[in-house]
Design a binder for these strands. Structure first.
Lengths: 296, 296
DNA sequence: CTGATTGAGTGTACGATATACACAGTTTCC
DNA sequence: GGAAACTGTGTATATCGTACACTCAATCAG
């Protein structure tokens, strides 16, 4: 069945009751309260697409839809990601998508997980946890910057899909064999993950700006405009002092050298901070007590 | 002029050219490309409300609108925050708001800054940078959790308002007198800020869930459902091992004790990680070179 | 004092978007 | 050879943000 074809219309059978869309049942649809919604999103995200045997073959599958949607988001950001845009990129009507995803949110959930992709293959395990974690952190940051539209989504409340778990698994793998308790491993994960996410906003903002074709100078001007207002304002004495001092500006990547000395780029700052975080974890690893149950 | 009153209608003067809404000019409205949009948002956010002398007095001001909007967001989350909802909470028509804000985005920008509020007053400066920074971090996290709808917004690309700068100023103030370069101070800020933001997502998610009246158990079930799928999946061996080990679960705050040993709450994990980050910074402070220009 | 001017809040209209619903045509099973 | 199940379509609807034209009030210039 090729898209946009049949036009004939004739009265047919009587109205059927609502057909079960998008298969997979969403088992406890009428589950308790509002919290069930999140569980249903998670369930859908993990459910494999059940290929029923009866009717006509679906012309596409969820991955096709997700790919099309990601293409749009990559090209024009989240605002451009409408059901209509996705559908017509695939050559279908808007409503056809609802055979594959119960709603837009579910599609976006799938896009988010797909966009994360798989984490980098683990390095040789002999190189030590620190280099492995560093590698992971760099990769994660690069991933976030390469899909700036991820940061246009709400910060919380998306269900965690397979790839999300893979990234976590990858980091935990770096920590195996250090004699850490399960709790410590999760906490260390949380520290690294938290730092990487939380401190990438500037870089993502720049990446997003670039993806939209805005020159670096213009981005720096826009971001700098905010900070610049601090200068001279009595509410921000320290910030003023810093911004008016040498190299107070924002270097986007070497292209905008700060006023003096070594121009520190956004990436430099990230790397610097990462080393501080790793230092903190290293110190813990040296001094912790080890008389617990550990993950070997 | 009381809201929702006059109904009379009569033909009057000829159509006027578009009146300048929301004052303040947004000076370079036709500035260069797409990057100008961000600058305009920032400009509006910082512009004081110009009280013109001519026409009828405004019945409210921006702060009234912001307060109403925050009330709605606090109560029912961002989805409930529609222009109509805000306006009718104030007893006005939807369009009246556009006399105060050029669009919804500008209103939300203002809400975000207002929601951040001012940072806590600095502690006595004699207590040392570490306790001061810790205090700041706890306060910031508490702020984020008390306004969970902040995390429903996109992660990047909001302009930075006065309160945002105040939080940054407050942290920088903790670092004065340590002999740091301006770059180092900004980088340390970025580390702490990044960690606090990035690692608060779980806590915010819980806070959000609570704000919507969902019992902790249900939230934990929803979040745990994602993680639970890792168990037994060969893609996630380490995660599986951790989750099946003692106290692998999520403790929401003491109310959901993990299976064994000391139940580690979400907050515990945050505090633990914060100390690691502070350790890392402390180590830097001890070993850094000091032959630079510094902020006294 | 009087008329002109500026600006406030209103009502209506419109466009974009997600999505509910009924249907038409197709494939497979009994 | 139906009947059943299912796919994609077309249409309709509700919700929002917001443009536009208008009415009326407050102020200023003469």
């Amino acid at each position: 069945m090729k898209p946009k074809s049949s036009k004939s219309k004739r009265p047919a059978a009587s109205p059927k009751p609502a057909p079960p869309r998008t298969g997979e049942s969403a088992s406890d649809a009428a589950a308790s309260g509002a919290g069930a919604e999140l569980r249903m999103r998670s369930e859908f995200l993990w459910a494999a697409q059940a290929r029923p045997t009866r009717g006509p073959k679906p012309t596409m599958d969820r991955d096709d839809v997700v790919r099309a949607a990601m293409g749009i988001a990559d090209a024009d950001g989240l605002v451009a990601l409408t059901m209509h845009a996705v559908a017509s990129a695939l050559g279908f009507t808007t409503m056809a998508l609802y055979r594959y995803f119960p709603n837009k949110e579910a599609l976006i959930d799938a896009c988010v997980d797909a966009a994360m992709g798989l984490p980098p293959a683990p390095r040789a395990s002999g190189i030590g946890w620190r280099r492995q974690v560093r590698h992971w952190a760099h990769a994660k940051r690069a991933m976030l910057c390469s899909r700036p539209w991820l940061a246009e989504l709400p910060f919380v409340a998306a269900p965690h899909g397979p790839n999300w778990l893979s990234w976590h698994e990858a980091l935990l793998t770096c920590l195996v064999g250090l004699g850490l308790t399960p709790e410590d491993m999760m906490d260390m994960l949380s520290v690294v993950h938290g730092y990487v996410h939380g401190s990438s906003d500037t870089a993502i903002s720049l990446a997003r700006s670039r993806a939209r074709g805005i020159p670096d100078e213009e981005w720096a001007a826009a971001v700098g405009a905010d900070l610049g207002r601090a200068i001279g304002d009595p509410r921000y004495p320290v910030l003023s002092a810093i911004l008016t001092s040498a190299s107070g500006g924002l270097a986007t990547g070497g292209s905008l050298p700060a006023k003096a000395g070594k121009p520190r780029t956004i990436d430099d700052s990230f790397f610097w901070g990462l080393e501080r975080v790793l230092d903190g974890l290293a110190e813990y690893l040296e001094h912790r007590r080890t008389d617990f149950v550990t993950i070997r």
